[in-house]
């Protein structure tokens, strides 16, 4: 079931569009904001709320890489692996993260703290390489070492 907060937030978005289905992505993001990910049950609830079918909502949910249809860690790390970051040493950054966290892309640490994912150009290529943790962008990581990376990660318990 959608919570009262979720319903209120979805209704606010519905008011912006001439068709209810247009609020699908917002609804998915709202649910994900409250629960961390989007379950099958949530897909069905959103479909009911927007007057469409679960299959339609799921087709949308699975298209977008920032909608998580599986549980993720408490914090999601998105490493930019596009070309400018790559030139500036992203592979090294990814290696450091893999070693430090003991996981590969698409995996979550055993303690449920971090999920590691690649992402497209974050639009901060002048300060490459860059990554995002939750809503924060971290830049200028060309010469980052395990210690400095550790200091960054510590901010995300």
């Amino acid at each position: 079931m959608l919570s009262a907060d979720e319903i209120r937030e979805i209704d606010a978005e519905l008011a912006h569009y001439e068709q209810a289905q247009a609020a699908t992505i917002e609804a998915l993001k709202i649910v994900q904001k409250h629960r961390g990910w989007v379950s099958d049950e949530a897909v069905a609830d959103i479909a009911e709320k927007l007057g469409t079918s679960p299959a339609t909502v799921d087709a949308v949910a699975t298209f977008y890489n920032l909608i998580y249809r599986k549980p993720v860690g408490r914090h999601v790390i998105h490493v930019c692996d596009s070309v400018s970051c790559w030139i500036m040493g992203q592979p090294r950054l990814t290696e450091l993260l893999r070693t430090q966290l003991g996981i590969d892309y698409g995996q979550t640490t055993a303690d449920g703290r971090f999920t590691l994912l690649p992402i497209c150009c974050l639009g901060t290529c002048d300060r490459a390489p860059a990554l995002m943790i939750d809503k924060d962008t971290h830049r200028d990581l060309e010469s980052v070492d395990a210690e400095r990376l550790g200091v960054i990660l510590e901010r995300y318990p």
Binding site: Q19, I25, L50, N65, L66, C120
Partner: peptide, 20 residues
Amino acid sequence: SAGRYICGEETALLNSLEGK
């Protein structure tokens, strides 16, 4: 948005804005 480069293509963008 919720990701995907192709959303930048203007007609894909319109579909995305329609929740598709």
